[in-house]
Amino acid sequence: MQKTESRNENFSSRQSSKIWFEQPDSANPYIAVDHFCHGYNLIELMEKRSFVDVFFLLFNGKLPSSAQSELLQQLMIALINPGPRHPATRAGLNAAVGKTDSVHILPISLAVIGGAHLGAAEVEASMRFIKKNLRKPTAELAATLVSQDHSGDVDHHPAPGFGSRFSAIDIFQNKIAKHFVQLDAAGKHLQWGNSLADALAKKDMGWLSTGLAAATLLDLGFNAKQGAGIYQLLSAPGLLAHGQEYCSKPITAMPFVKDEDYFIERPEDEQA
């Protein structure tokens, strides 16, 4: 066995950031007297720009145009709440009604919405898929994708961000997409995605929330690595609101499935 010895790797001596500068106080350099986001004083940003503008700036390093700001704001509203039936929301409800510390509700929901099926991981994958296939004709691609899809799930996602929800087209997401493509900042990613969704429609498939977020974020200039976390972030308000709605309710306020509706698919169930 080889003897354990250090590789003496050259680690950085300091943490770095291109995003944020904290101007130290001359008397106590642990305290900041001013904060700068990509060079802009935060207090000046508070006075002159909207939250959406500063959000865009934080991730992209530049302030958005009015059209970009409008599209991002509408995406933020579109994604603000995955809704009370969404598994990520229900994870937070379970924590809340079980009197889990309130600070844990949001992280619990966000971990669940990080999933690869209708979650943040699918947004990242969808952004890569759209970028890679953007030049391909959508009708042929749709046919190929459907013929190659062997996931075994009841709801098929022949490509990340596109597919069926509960065996049908997700009508609401497709409605939002039709609206988004008409906005000034909508670009080639939303338009191509819309065409792919149309080509999938005869198979009862179309845009999923993850694909819609992916195409919109690409049109706004975000990259795939950013997409996953931003999807979590933009879904957070609704996840938290639903969780908090249950914080003060008794534990009996959520269904607890009755024994006769709980099926253990094992031989011992018959013996018990």
Partner: peptide
Amino acid sequence: RCTDIDYQGPAPRPV
């Protein structure tokens, strides 16, 4: 400390 972060972004600029 604030100075322990190696800031590599743009210099302060007006909004």
